[in-house]
Every structure is written in structure tokens, then in C-alpha cells.
Design a protein around this nucleic acid. Structure first.
Lengths: 235, 235
DNA sequence: CCAAAAGTGTTAATTGTACACCCATGC
DNA sequence: GCATGGGTGTACAATTAACACTTTTGG
């Protein structure tokens, strides 16, 4: 009763990922069309059953490897557990949902039954997958403002205006290139590469190319208020 | 293979909660001492097996009802899934971890084998429970600065200095009562009740009593930067 | 009247926003 | 040279942190 470990009831556990990418100034998600019985023909998130010898992150990375080259996945993080008893027909399946991010310049080979869909114009989706996608979008939006996740949406080198397009598409409203550059620079996230991008056929000054400093996600603005007392090191 | 539902492998799923409360200017967590074989005698988080007919939040609330009156739990939220194959001895058990918050003025009846422990001075804990507790603490700390979760740590009515103690204990450093009141007031979270608390035996001006406005958690400072353009409604 | 605790006002510093202006290129 | 984007400088606004000062109580 108070036993900690009790595996008497079989219980299926699946992992699902909302893989997001910005392309053509829109935020899109990778979906595949179900070929099997429950909700045939609807679009659903890639994923599948958790194997007994892997943890959930290993599992989702393994399963995504069928759809997207894993090395192209710049960021993966847990979103939440979805466990409503009726979330899928038949016996209950608990799902651990993930957010995955792919840089805008990669164009992964995707299987026949798989397609990118605009997050703000989703087709009919299977089960509770729409909710998961919206959750992923909202998590991304929130984290863009206080972490450096933006790096996972951008190519290795990029112009500030390209970055502005990425942020605008992900956030859903235009951000100013001026201030984007200023804020990211102040936080020490942008490194000039010294290279420049040639202007388009209509002219214009060549844009400087930047890259993100560091690798991996980090929180860059942890406390909006109630900050801990400063360490008194920098003037 | 690509089958969405496949429950061939039995898989145990448990729910665990780090229930936090501030008392005597310290943040503490509710733990019970294991009576059974793996890790006997170590302190572990309350929780237990997920039943097939309940979702994870229903489950953790049900199981906590044995330890803490559910009505005293002012806030419950999912933390993360812990799924390392070797996180517990024997067959793998996937755990969904929760953060729970109890106001500082309630003193729940707790069972014999259960005790509060200071989060910053934890005893030897079972399995990966220490990691879960630290995760819960960090989540609380982060959310204190950009949401109104503070309400879940505070009594219904409180003085600003009592609130200051709560925030200081949870965050791990002193916050100023002056600025705490100012920030929360600006965000419209504090409502004066009109009542006052009598001063202590050493004198001092009587403190005004406040309550939190609204109920339930809400994000009060969603964007640190890259805010959407204002609606141009308020001057 | 003095100490103690609460509450208010003022100021400084930081950070984000808006906007004007200059720069480099294609045609 | 002019249109077109890119980049910088400056001013402004909002918010937080720091601290001095006033208020109200007990002894």
C-alpha cells in the first residue's frame, strides 16, 4: 500500500516531441500522418514507446532520429507529462512531451508521411497533440526572453536582421533589430565573426555576420525582480 | 513499430511530490522514512503508484491526502519526469515529480513516520529524491520573481515583514520589505485588508495586514525583454 | 523621551524602447 | 546620386535598489 515499487499494473509510456523550426518567417512543427486505426489520417507528433532500458530523453532522441538527423536538433527539453486516462482510446497511455528545436538553415530529409505545418494554422491533429504543440510554442516564447535558446533556432552565422525574423516568427510579433542586437550584446551572447553577408539585388549595406557565444542553453536573465545582492565584483 | 499504442511491456509509474513550506525563516520539505527494503530508513518523498483511472495530478493529490490535508495545499505543479533506468533498484519505475506549496500558518497533522526537513540541510535521501527536492526549490525560487506563487506560501492575511521573511527564506537571501511591498503593489497583487497586527512586547508601530488579490497562480511579469507592443490603452 | 518596528519619499542605477541619423552597397 | 537595407548614437521611459526620514507604538 505504501510500497514504493509496485509494477503489478502494466502501463504504457510514450514519448512525443514537438519539433519546431522557423522557415519563411513562420514557426512550424513536424507532424506525421497516422496510418493506423485510432485517428487514422490525422496529423500527430513523432515519438513512440519508451523502452525499458532508456530514459525519456534518450528515447525521444532515438525516435526522432528516424525523422530528423539528431545532430540537427540543437535543443531538446521536457515539457510535461500528459496522463488523462482518456487521452487516447483504449488502455491509458502516459506521454512525456518534449520541445525540440532545429535551426532555420537545416533542411532535414523527412519521410514520405511527414510534413512541416505552420503552428498557427494546425490541421486536425490526433489525440491531445494540439495542446502539446501549443504548450511547446508557449514555452519557446517565454524562454526566448530570459534565456539564450534563440541559438537553437539560428544558423551558426547569421545577420541581425535574419535573427530578427526568427524572433519575430517565434514570438508572433515584430521585434526591433536595433534593440534585439543591443539586448543580446549586453548579455554577451553575440560575437561578431568578422564576416559580412552580401547585400541583395536591390542594394543596401552589407550585413555583418554574428554567431552565438557559448553552446548549450543557459538562463541569461534569471531574476526579473528580487535579485540576490550583487557580488560587488564589477564596478 | 510505428504503432502508437503498444502496452506490451509492463511499466510502473509513480508520482512524487516535494511539499514545501516556510517555517521559522527556513524552507522545509515533507519527507517520510522508508520502512521497506530498498533504502530502508532513508527519507523519501511522499507519493506512490499511479492508478490506471487517474491522471498524475489527481494521483498526487490523492496520495498526499494521507499526509497533508489537501485543502491546505495551495499550489501543485508538475516539475519533471525522472526516468533513468537505474533510478530505483529492480525494474525501472518512471516518476512524475511535483512541487506542492503549503502556507506558513498551517500546521498539518502528519503521520508518525513523517517529518519536515530543512531543504538546505537534507538528511540522507532515498533514490533520486534529493535531486527532485533541489529541483522543486529552484523552480519555486525562479517563479517567485515573475509570478504570484508567493500567495501559496503566505497565510490569508499577513504583514509585509512576515511576507519578507517568507520570500527571504524561500530565496535564500534577504529581500527588502520596502521594495517587496512596492513591487507587489505595482503589480496589483497586494490588497490592504484594513486590519492591523499588534506590535510585539518591545514596541513598534502596528503593522498593516494585507492579502493577495485573486486566487490561483498567474504570471505577472511574462516578458523580461522583447515585450509585445503595448496595447496603447493605459496612458 | 527613547528604542523599536513599520511605512513613505527620494534618488540613483540599470535596462529596455523609440527614433533619428549616418554608412555602404547596387543600379 | 538615389534608393535600400544595415548599423550606431542619443534621448526617453520604466523599473528596481538603496537609503534617509517619518510615523506609531511599548516601556
Amino acid at each position: 500500500m505504501r510500497s514504493h515499487i509496485n509494477s503489478s499494473a502494466p502501463l504504457a509510456h510514450e514519448v512525443l516531441a514537438a519539433v519546431l523550426q522557423v522557415r519563411s518567417a513562420t514557426l512550424r512543427v513536424l507532424l506525421w500522418r497516422r496510418a493506423l486505426d485510432p485517428h487514422v489520417g490525422r496529423w500527430s507528433l513523432p515519438g513512440g514507446r519508451l523502452r525499458p532500458d532508456e530514459d525519456v530523453e534518450t528515447s525521444i532522441r532515438r525516435q526522432l532520429a528516424e525523422k530528423v538527423d539528431v545532430r540537427q536538433l540543437k535543443h531538446v527539453e521536457q515539457l510535461a507529462v500528459f496522463s488523462a486516462p482518456d487521452r487516447v482510446p483504449g488502455p491509458r497511455v502516459v506521454a512525456t512531451a518534449f520541445l525540440g528545436l532545429v535551426p532555420s538553415d537545416v533542411d532535414p530529409e523527412i519521410p514520405e508521411d511527414t510534413r512541416w505545418h505552420e503552428v498557427d494554422a494546425l490541421p486536425r491533429t490526433a489525440f491531445d497533440h494540439r495542446e502539446i504543440i501549443i504548450g511547446a510554442r508557449d514555452r519557446l516564447r517565454a524562454k526566448l526572453s530570459y534565456t539564450n535558446v534563440g541559438f537553437a533556432l539560428a544558423p551558426r552565422e547569421f545577420t541581425v536582421s535574419a535573427l530578427r525574423e526568427l524572433y519575430s516568427a517565434a514570438l508572433g510579433y515584430k521585434v526591433s533589430a536595433t534593440n534585439l542586437q543591443r539586448v543580446l550584446s549586453r548579455r554577451g551572447l553575440l560575437a561578431p565573426t568578422g564576416h559580412t553577408a552580401p547585400p541583395g539585388r536591390s542594394g543596401g549595406r552589407p550585413a555583418a555576420l554574428f554567431s552565438f557565444t557559448g553552446n548549450g542553453i543557459q538562463v541569461t536573465d534569471p531574476f526579473a525582480v528580487f535579485r540576490p545582492p550583487p557580488k560587488r565584483s564589477r564596478k
